[in-house]
Design a protein around this nucleic acid. Structure first.
Length: 588
RNA sequence: GCCAUCGUAGCUCAGUGGCAGAGCAGCGGUUUCGUAAACCGCAGGUCGACGGUUCGAAUCCGUCCGAUGGCUCCA
């Protein structure tokens, strides 16, 4: 079973970083207590790339406080104080942290019979299960980054604490590298590129989390949709369309009003009937399934739709294209027999990997999520479905991680997270079994035995949502889309006014071959036009002057800076058409 | 929603109680140029909105809207 494991080297470094970050958190709490003696300290674990610590303080930390805290931390590190663990009894622990309510809360939660340990360095004592470096001097490189509010134990009914985030590494070089990566990530932030490249926007007048696709972004989207449609046609899916709203009774039957109401917008009144904007497409697809009596001979039925859904998201969680209130799912629902389930899942997996590869993603993390505590459906069905997912992964030799109990209440699922060009992970594809809807709607098909059977229903999205996938795609390519996806594939750059007519003629030739090309006829020098095209990340710059007009060609400069020299227009056309036709994810 | 920070021209930003500014973008003109920014000029503002304090508010206070980083959740 190819379940992912870290390599020994990875885990050794991970362990060292864990210790450094955990230790850094202790030093931070020490510093906070030094500067804010009345602070109550709560919890401070290591996290990816760093650490945090939560405090209950009368007034939130200011950005200035970070500098002062960091100074105290550096002083502690310079003193190289040893970390000393000690085991204490429950009563001793209570006494040691008598004036620390959060520590008392943690002690209450510790299981009886397990040893309680503390860790001391200098004058600072913390309740702690351990794993530190030997002494404060062994925290080689750290930096405090931000402060943020965080609820005690992550529950918003609890008091909000003040969290300080920091980053800590085994060397200054590693810290520098991490900070450089943050800078790199900021450079390719899709919100920034969306504005700079004129791809999309949101408008205060429209409302937060509602995306406006500008012509250039919409061009990319329509290419995404085109590939998506072609592939679905090829793989036996049937496109369907469904409305954006449906009656309350439908959402009552589906269970959305019971389980999903907080994510749905309030009802609108239509002639005394309640209608709701759809947060999912499933009930509509189920209705199409139910519009006729189904036979086992028809199965599997695969309905697919680019369905716009609306979900209420709390204002604080909205984020560019990655978390919005209205989005388009590349949805599909597969209705099939139990015998067909495994092949269907394999088919979806193959499809997902193919599609992701077309868009330049070659690196994935796959997660299998199994039955949670609270679940609907027959446990035997869960077992069969989970096994089908597992066997599908095995058949395709896909390494994966298992999230025990991480499935939805209505079925087990399989998620694919893609890794982008700078190693960040994004959830896109999801394949989910649904035992809830077939039951609620009483779905059935007639089997070979003449009896009615309940079909299996698989819900899946490959991109996830077009908005999110576009956001990830922008960041993956840093806005420099490959030729086939570039909103503008080539720009004609006439050197002087007398070359403008020729440039238009060439543009016409390119357009005739289906190439998206523009002419930069502004009264600017060639240098300015090249700079402009470069910043717009246009793959091909075709300079047209006297020589080029003479030869019916263009001097070709690539976005990469490479100069291909004077080429006949036919050659340039063939090259761009070729890259486009084979959807080369790396060209130019 | 909660905590923090922020909101000045299309964009990036200066202005901290006394006449709203710069660069880029835009528009007009000059220039006709060989691989990352020619030159001159013009125009562009409810300083996020509303209310308050003040002789006077972009600036101080309050409420709201929006953005950013977190908390929780997720396509």
């Amino acid at each position: 079973m190819p379940v992912k494991q870290p390599t020994p080297q990875e885990s050794e470094l991970d362990d060292r970083r864990y210790r450094i970050r955990h230790s850094a958190a202790h030093v931070l709490a020490d510093a906070v207590l030094e500067l804010f003696p009345h602070a109550k300290y709560a919890i401070g674990p290591p996290v990816e790339d760093g650490f945090y610590y939560d405090f209950d303080v009368p007034t939130p930390f200011t950005p200035d406080d970070l500098g002062r805290l960091e100074a105290v931390m550096r002083e502690r590190v310079a003193r190289d104080l040893p970390f000393e663990m000690a085991e204490v009894s429950r009563d001793e622990a209570r006494a040691l942290f008598a004036d620390q309510p959060y520590k008392q809360d943690i002690i209450d939660g510790l299981p009886e019979g397990e040893p309680i340990t503390t860790c001391r360095h200098g004058g600072f004592l913390d309740l702690c299960r351990g794993r530190h470096v030997e002494s404060t001097g062994r925290v080689p490189a750290f930096k405090l980054l931000t402060t943020a509010g965080a609820y005690w134990r992550g529950d918003e009914r609890n008091r909000m604490l003040q969290r300080v985030y920091g980053s800590a590494w085994e060397s200054e070089a590693a810290l520098e590298e991490h900070l450089r990566q943050l800078e790199e990530a900021a450079q390719r932030d899709h919100r920034r590129l969306g504005r700079e490249l004129d791809l999309f926007s949101t408008s205060e007048a429209v409302g937060p989390g509602l995306v406006l696709w500008h012509p250039k972004g919409a061009r990319v989207r329509s290419l995404m949709e085109q590939v998506w449609r072609e592939e679905h046609d090829r793989r036996g899916y049937q496109p369907v369309y469904s409305p954006h709203v449906g009656k309350g009774a439908l959402w009552a039957t589906s269970g959305h009003l019971d389980f999903y109401r907080e994510s749905m917008y309030d009802a609108m009144d239509v002639e005394g009937q309640e209608y709701f904007a759809k947060p999912m497409n499933c009930p509509f697809h189920v209705q199409i399934y139910q519009s006729a009596k189904r036979s086992y001979r028809e199965l599997p039925i695969r309905y697919t739709e680019l369905g716009a859904v609306y979900r209420y998201e709390r204002s604080g969680v909205l984020h560019g294209l990655l978390r919005v209130r209205g989005f388009t799912q590349d949805d599909a629902h597969i209705f099939c027999t139990p015998e067909q389930v495994e092949d269907e899942v394999v088919g979806v997996l193959d499809f997902a990997f193919h599609l992701l590869r077309v868009f330049g993603f070659d690196d994935y993390d796959v997660f299998l999520s199994t039955r949670p505590e609270k679940a609907v459906g027959d446990p035997a069905d869960w077992e069969l479905a989970t096994e089908a997912l597992r066997r599908a992964l095995d058949r395709r030799h896909v390494e994966h991680l298992v999230d025990e109990g991480g499935g939805a209440f209505y079925g087990p699922k399989l998620d694919i997270k893609v890794r982008d060009a700078i190693g960040r992970s994004w959830q896109c594809t999801t394949i989910q079994f649904d035992f809830n809807l077939p039951q609620r709607f009483g779905l059935a098909y007639d089997g070979a035995d003449g009896a009615e059977h309940r079909p299996y229903m698989v819900h899946r999205a490959l991109f996830g949502s077009l908005e999110r996938f576009f956001g990830v795609l922008i960041e993956h390519y840093a806005g420099a889309f490959p030729t086939w996806l570039a909103p503008v594939q080539a720009v004609l750059i006439p050197i002087a006014d007398r070359h403008v007519d020729y440039a238009h003629a060439v543009r016409g030739q390119l357009a005739a071959a289906g190439i998206r090309a523009e002419v930069d006829a502004r009264n600017e020098r060639m240098n300015a036009k090249i700079r402009n095209a470069q910043l717009a990340k246009i793959p091909y710059m075709l300079v047209a002057g006297d020589k080029e007009a003479q030869a019916n060609g263009a001097a070709v400069r690539l976005r990469t800076g490479q100069d291909l020299g004077l080429l006949p227009v036919d050659d340039v056309t063939a090259r761009i058409v070729g890259e486009t036709a084979r959807r080369d994810p790396k060209a130019p």
